[in-house]
Amino acid sequence: MTDPATPYDPGSAQGPGSAQALLEAVDLHKSFGPTPALDGAGLRVRAGEVVAVMGPSGSGKSTLLHCLAGILTPDKGTVRYRDVELSAMGDGLRSELRRTDFGFVFQFGQLVPELSCLENVALPLRLGSVKRKEAESRAREWLERLEVADVADKRPGETSGGQGQRVAVARALVTGPRVVFADEPTGALDSLNGERVMQLLVNAAKETNAAVVLVTHEPRVAAYSDREVVVRDGKSREMEPVT
């Protein structure tokens, strides 16, 4: 599946602090049926920064995230990752991108209920043809880092919500992604658990210089970001950090 002419190179990460956008969306439009979810939204994400996407529910936050991640294709507008347009990539390439360069943490449902937590974390590596032993030992490291090594052999359904989200964070980060997409990652958690998950997510992302696109409607969760983007009625407004 790996094409030698792949127009992006997962190996060469951009240095921190680079002003150039790692991921950039311009003038996105997307409708589900008659109702527009995005109406000219845009967003720039620089390497290693945490961007909070805020806005009332139904404003198009999640749709913006899905377009950025290449899960949804916008009706109009462009999403560029490292200067390559996502819509120009085939499904296979986009899938590979999700596996190697992106990570996902959702409110729930992203873990495969049939696999143990360890296998879930190892899954992206194994999809990328890493040997099982190797994949699982790296997965175990990440579980330890996120303080959930004890649930490694349990299935997601047998863990608490907080543990499950940490497993999800571990899985999102195990491949060393450049961008982690988090959609209300603490939505189903109480504040203490939620804060802990956010701390772990942001710290781990900072350590690996991964950017985080964090969709949330909770200001305290958004406070973990470096800057925020407000989406309202399908339009976005980027706020520069106030110092």
């Binding site: 296979g92 596996r99 873990l111």
Partner: peptide
């Protein structure tokens, strides 16, 4: 869920 983590 598998598609999400990048299975083609």
């Amino acid at each position: 869920a598998l598609r999400l983590v990048g299975a083609g």
